[in-house]
Nucleic acid binder design. Structure first.
Lengths: 213, 213
DNA sequence: GTCTATAATGAGATAGAC
DNA sequence: GTCTATCTCATTATAGAC
């Protein structure tokens, strides 16, 4: 076998691990399964990484990058001024299409979160994972804000946290039941509810009425 | 050791397994760890269960029963007519107190769901788990409906699904970040948003205004 | 740097004495 | 019915030849 720089070997192993974890779960992602997927020998693994845990740690960051790329279309402001409600609903739809396109990867992300929470010294990884989710949601909210011309009645970071919680619940529920109609209903509800937290062109009138009642 | 009926031995093993899974996770719940916790020999395990998977299957049902008992206080209609929003908020608070009281158990429930989804022939268990969550949420909504005198603008089962998704998201977020303030903000938001789906004494006026706008 | 071979450990499950 | 002892297999990790 050719000589491969350690850095590339690490990347290849992480890539292979991502595939195994998504396909068969964290528990099945043994060093053997990973090197088999990567077409390497077992010893090469321990040349590139000191332990399986070290690889799984890196895996979370890599998987997040991949998820981010998947979500990119949702952040692209390709169409124009629209209501806040519709902008959020469209963002959720885009997210959900990503989930449907690769349910295994989504399952894997949850499993990795739980693995990190359970593994000594790895809890911080779970936090960083969610920090990035929040940042991603906040970016999406910014886009929605620009599209609709409305802004928020509270810190966008707070709303981002709501959005992440809703998408998590949406995702788990769909993974368990595969009920597209229920998912759509939840997204409609979430879009309505979150949009009510906006103030601006479209929503100010309704907001004002609510406040007076 | 005394003779113990197989049925009791099964119960004891499930109980021990629940402890191990909550404390150290599904992956650490080996047959050895479980029998050690139960104070039995390894052979006794395979006398009572044909496999580890069979036990984990039973475990989900038992854990659900336990969760249900924990939630009972939230369903007890101990105080009186109040707004739908406050009834829901109180129910969420009660649920959240349960999560804070035993975070490990909550983590375990998620891990068991994911285990069931990954294990051949066990996916149906995950569905049943969520069916019970939905039923539990629906019962809670009934209580809220009675307390407030309001009713719903759509099938309670649909609203129950929303509520479960929200509590799932709430729970994961809190397990990762342990941010009580963020959890409270999410519960406030959820209570407001869900209460808007009610029609009746308190909400009919606001509902009517929304419809006209 | 990379490989084969193997050490060391722990897993689920079982045989067979009592 | 219950136990000890063991089987068989898979795991992470490493030693040492090349």
């Amino acid at each position: 076998m050719p000589r491969i720089p350690a850095i590339e070997r690490r990347a290849a192993l992480v890539h292979a691990a991502l595939h195994v974890v998504a396909e068969r779960g964290v528990a099945a992602a043994t060093t053997r399964a990973i090197v088999a997927q990567a077409g390497m020998s077992l010893a090469s693994f321990h040349y590139a990484f000191t332990s399986r845990d070290e690889l799984l740690g890196e895996l979370i960051d890599t998987a997040l990058e991949q998820e981010k790329r998947t979500l990119a279309p949702a952040l692209a402001p390709e169409f124009d001024p629209v209501s806040m409600r519709d902008a959020i609903r469209a963002g959720l739809e885009q997210y959900f299409l990503g989930v449907k396109a690769d349910p295994q990867r989504e399952k894997a992300m949850f499993e990795l979160t739980h693995w990190a929470m359970r593994t000594p010294g790895m809890h911080a990884l779970a936090r960083r994972q969610y920090d990035r989710y929040y940042a991603l949601a906040e970016a999406a909210l910014d886009v929605a804000s620009e599209k609709s011309g409305a802004s928020w009645d509270r810190p966008p970071a707070h709303i981002a946290a709501l959005l992440v919680a809703i998408t998590d619940g949406l995702t788990i529920g769909w993974l368990v039941n595969r009920d597209d109609a229920a998912a759509a209903a939840l997204m409609d509800f979430a879009a309505d509810a979150v949009a009510r937290l906006a103030v601006g062109p479209d929503e100010s009138i309704a907001q004002e009425r609510m406040r007076q009642s």
